[in-house]
Design a protein around this nucleic acid. Structure first.
Length: 275
DNA sequence: ATATGAGCCTGTATGC
DNA sequence: TGCATACAGGCTCATA
């Protein structure tokens, strides 16, 4: 399940193979993603050159050369982009929904069993895109800092776990990294967001940045589906303190890790280390 | 502004 | 062995 580190790893891998290359052919086998792939999708891409790939939250933004447009893609829960040589690409598998074929022989294949991902092109500013307009700051930039988080949680009585996963507050912190950063910061996931001091927010922000940066450095986490642009898994799952470890021992105090739920999402915590 | 829950979707794991 | 069920959970949308 790609979160920010996984999407960033994909972005880097894809950039090295498609930037400065021109799209020759688009094959859409199934338009039914999170939203249907628009019928003008293929025409808006053929002949376009990728100038760069950016990331905003967990969205990939393929910048197109001549018409100042952008291909906006989201991997959802189970989406993957894998780069092949068009000559020796493997046989089609289930859920290979889209192929992007480049003039230099690169084939980008999008596979997404659960079809929670999305893909469409747009022209104009990112901020005019409804999917991007309301997003909070990027966690790895200076715009995301303790005072910001403190100020924007003064009226939030809901749990800190749900707050850090709210994309209007900060983007890119999914369930896994929310669990990990709260453990690392020693904050109980149930704690109301407006009952956390600025000092503790400084710790939390530092841990969110650290865990995301470490995960990117490890090539992301692979639990089941995630692979990078070369089809390879990440390694950060080996460094989890709490996620998926309920019933096991806390790596700090050896207490037994507890399972609870926030908004239907699994939360794992150490009740002794997190207050 | 904040909070909650439904719904999207299929593969995998579990229980009977 | 089959079948039913729960779960995984990022995201948007509707509702309060």
């Amino acid at each position: 399940m790609p979160e920010l580190p996984e999407v960033e790893t994909v972005r880097r891998g894809l950039s090295s193979v498609v930037v400065a290359n021109t799209l020759k052919q688009i094959v859409v086998r199934d338009r039914r993603l999170r939203w249907p792939i628009p019928t003008d999708f293929e025409d808006s891409l053929v002949g376009q050159t990728i100038t760069s790939i950016d990331r905003r939250s967990k969205y990939l933004l393929f910048r197109l050369g001549s018409n100042r447009a952008t291909l906006l893609a989201h991997l959802g829960m189970t989406g993957s982009f894998i780069a092949y040589n068009a000559n020796d690409a493997p046989a089609l598998k289930a859920h290979d929904h889209v192929d992007l074929v480049f003039a230099n022989g690169v084939l980008l294949r999008y596979n997404d069993p659960r079809r929670f991902g999305s893909m469409h092109t747009f022209r104009g500013l990112d901020g005019d895109q409804p999917l991007l307009a309301a997003l909070g700051p990027e966690p790895l930039t200076d715009a995301f800092h303790a005072a910001y988080l403190y100020e924007h949680t003064r009226r939030r009585t809901g749990s800190i776990k749900q707050a850090v996963m709210d994309n209007t507050l900060v983007v890119g912190v999914g369930n896994i990294y929310a669990n990990e950063s709260l453990f690392r910061a020693g904050i109980h996931p149930n704690r109301p967001a407006n009952r956390i001091s600025l000092v503790r927010y400084e710790r939390l922000v530092a841990e969110i940045k650290a865990v995301l940066a470490e995960a990117i450095a490890a090539g992301g986490s692979t639990l089941r589906d995630y692979v990078n642009a070369n089809g390879e898994p990440g390694a950060f799952q080996l460094n989890y303190f709490v996620y998926g470890r309920d019933g096991e021992f806390c790596k700090h105090c050896s207490g037994v890790l507890k399972l609870m739920r926030h908004g239907g999402r699994a939360t794992v915590l150490c009740a002794r280390c997190q207050r």
